[in-house]
């Protein structure tokens, strides 16, 4: 229980570093204010994320965690509030020099081979042509996929594809990696193996990571801090700290405190999930 900390930004201030990502009063509303169809998705979110920190956003469906991730990445401009990354304000424009995205499903372009996909990503980033192949092969080898460079994405299994997708996010050499349920399409076992790989890789690269997930075990296993969000409108309900060094081994899952934290998260989330379901039901019932 002592891990639960309600003070926002405890991790960053405790470490005494300038935050890598600073979120101040971010509010996102869809539709006009007061309109019947308007939805308040995020309500006054403030959060600091330290360099090298692994933060999970956890919450019921529709709580706006993906929206928040898109706002941090500059794919969305929030209704109000601001996000600062590496000292510069993100103003609804992507910052490919600082931030890389890994999306829910593989976003490898199906009309290019794996290596071509990496080249394109690096080209978009402005990496000189001569360096692209080396960077790409390094990243592929790092996830054990070096032999598949000339394959098309559909020739790979879902798990392999997502592994490559992850590698693409890592190879672009940004300081920040935003991951939107990257393992959602995978089965439980592959998820755990990939999560373990991710933990190992990240311990090496020292990237700052914001990770959206539905899975409680995944959140505990990977994160330094878990931000638990409320059902719509999304607010920070509480923050749970996980004090365990990276890289994490599967043994961590067997420790009693792993289970305790998982149960604690479930208790925190259960009410929110019920509330989210009720909201959904009302919207469907009255919406027709």
């Amino acid at each position: 229980m002592s891990e639960a900390a309600t003070a926002i930004g405890a991790g960053a201030t405790a470490a005494g570093l300038a935050p890598a990502i600073s979120i101040r009063g971010v509010t996102q509303r869809f539709g006009a204010v007061g309109a019947a169809q308007g939805v308040l998705a995020l309500d006054d979110i403030s959060l600091d994320i330290a360099p090298g920190e692994f933060v999970c956003l956890l919450g019921p469906s529709g709580c706006g965690k993906s929206t928040l991730l898109n706002i941090i990445g500059g794919l969305f401009k929030p209704t109000s509030g601001e996000v600062t990354v590496a000292g510069k304000r993100v103003d609804g424009a992507p910052r490919p020099d600082e931030i890389a995205f890994v999306f829910q499903e593989s976003t490898l372009f199906p009309w290019y081979t794996i290596i071509e996909n990496f080249r394109i990503a690096l080209k978009f980033q402005g990496v000189p042509k001569s360096e692209r192949d080396d960077l790409a092969m390094d990243a592929l080898k790092a996830v054990g996929m070096g032999g598949f460079a000339r394959h098309y994405p559909t020739q790979l299994s879902v798990g392999m594809r997502q592994r490559v997708n992850m590698a693409r996010g890592i190879c672009v050499r940004t300081n920040i990696l935003l991951m939107d349920e990257p393992f959602a399409a995978l089965d439980e076992q592959s998820r755990m193996v990939l999560g373990e790989d991710l933990s190992t890789l990240l311990a090496k690269t020292g990237k700052t990571i914001v990770f959206v997930t539905h899975s409680l075990a995944e959140a505990v296993f990977l994160s330094d801090r878990i931000v638990v969000m409320t059902a719509r409108p999304g607010r920070v309900k509480t923050i749970v700290n996980v004090n365990e060094r990276h890289p994490r081994a599967p043994d961590f899952m067997l420790e009693p405190r792993f289970g305790e934290m998982r149960n604690e998260l479930f208790a925190l989330l259960r009410d929110e999930i019920r509330r989210a379901m009720a909201l959904q039901r009302d919207a469907d019932g009255g919406g027709a």
Binding site: G31, Q37, S66
Partner: peptide
């Protein structure tokens, strides 16, 4: 997510 991704637009 899908619900808030596709808001009713006013033109």
């Amino acid at each position: 997510m899908s619900m808030i991704d596709a808001p009713r637009e006013i033109i």
